[in-house]
Amino acid sequence: MQKLSNKTLSDINQNCSAKIIAIDHEEWFINKAEALGIKINNIITVTHKRKKGPICVNINTTSFMMRLSDANRIKVMKL
């Protein structure tokens, strides 16, 4: 069930999933992120999280790491 509160990807706990609703970043990042599958409406799962460190996320069959500062700029809806 979807919660109504808007959060950023950095707020999502390890092993939890969320739906991407907006990416507030530079154009090149958005392009690369889209190529990696980080698109609006896609479901993203946080697979690993380090305290104040990078996070590891998964979309479909692709996993990648991103910095917390970048995860802060991806708005999501927690599932």
């Binding site: 990042f29 990696l36 990648f64 991103m66 910095r67 500062s69 970048d70």
Partner: peptide, 9 residues
């Protein structure tokens, strides 16, 4: 400013 990083795993 720290560079944004997206590394595929």
């Amino acid at each position: 400013i720290h560079e944004s990083v997206l590394i595929e795993m």
